[in-house]
C-alpha cells in the first residue's frame, strides 16, 4: 500500500501545481502594487516639453484635484495603443490628465503628440528618466491615480483599456472626489 502511495506522489504533486496554475491564470500579471500607494508623490520639478504649448509639471501641481499621471514615450508601442483612450479621457474633462515624457527626445515627443493628439493638461519632460525612477516606473506606459492631497492611490502598469477604465479607474476617481 505504501509502495502504491509512493508511485502516486508525482501525480499528487502535479495536481497541486496545476491548481496553482489555474489560480495564476485568473490574476492579472500587470497588477503590480506600488510601494508608493497612499504616499505623497515624490518631490519633482520637470521642464516643459518645449514647443508643445503646455506648461511644465512639478509635484505641487498635483494637489487640489484628482489627477491621472501618465508616463509615456514616443518610442513605446503600447503607448500608441492606449493613446486614443487618453484623448477620450481628456475630452470628457472628468479628471486632470498630466503627461510625463519618459526617456524621450523633445522633437520625437512633440511629433508623437502632433500625430496622435495631445491629451495632457501639462507635460513634464523626463529625458533621463530620473523622475520615473522616483515614481518606481519600470516600463511605459504606466498611469498613476493621485488624490486631491497629492497622494498616489493607484498604479496601473501597461496600456489602459476601456475595461480597466470602467471597472477600476473611473469608480476610483468618483470615490476620491467624494473624500
Amino acid at each position: 500500500m505504501l509502495r502504491r502511495l509512493l508511485f502516486a506522489l508525482p501525480l499528487l504533486g502535479f495536481a497541486a501545481v496545476a491548481v496553482w496554475f489555474l489560480h495564476g491564470l485568473g490574476r492579472d500579471p500587470a497588477a503590480i502594487p506600488s510601494a508608493l500607494i497612499d504616499k505623497p508623490v515624490p518631490e519633482f520639478r520637470l521642464p516643459p516639453l518645449e514647443g508643445s504649448g503646455k506648461p511644465a509639471l512639478a509635484a505641487q501641481d498635483l494637489r487640489g484635484r484628482v489627477a491621472l499621471v501618465n508616463f509615456y514615450a514616443s518610442w513605446c508601442a503600447p503607448c500608441r495603443i492606449e493613446h486614443p483612450l487618453l484623448m477620450r479621457i481628456a475630452a470628457e474633462k472628468r479628471v486632470a490628465l498630466y503627461g510625463i515624457a519618459y526617456k524621450d527626445g523633445m522633437a520625437e515627443s512633440r511629433r508623437f503628440l502632433a500625430q496622435l493628439g495631445d491629451p495632457y493638461a501639462a507635460i513634464g519632460w523626463d529625458g533621463d528618466g530620473r523622475v520615473a525612477i522616483d515614481w518606481g516606473v519600470y516600463g511605459v506606459p504606466e498611469t498613476f491615480v493621485v488624490d486631491r492631497a497629492g497622494r498616489i492611490r493607484h498604479r496601473h502598469v501597461g496600456p489602459l483599456s476601456d475595461d480597466t477604465m470602467a471597472k477600476v479607474i473611473v469608480p476610483m476617481i468618483a470615490r476620491l472626489e467624494r473624500e
Binding site: R4, P10, L11, A18
Partner: peptide, 21 residues
C-alpha cells in the same frame, strides 16, 4: 494549454501511479 497540460501530465502520471508499482 492548461487543459492539455493536465490531460498529458496528469493522465500519464495517473497511469504511472496505477501501472508502475
Amino acid at each position: 494549454i492548461l487543459a492539455i497540460l493536465v490531460a498529458a501530465i496528469g493522465g500519464s502520471l495517473a497511469l504511472y501511479a496505477w501501472r508502475a508499482p
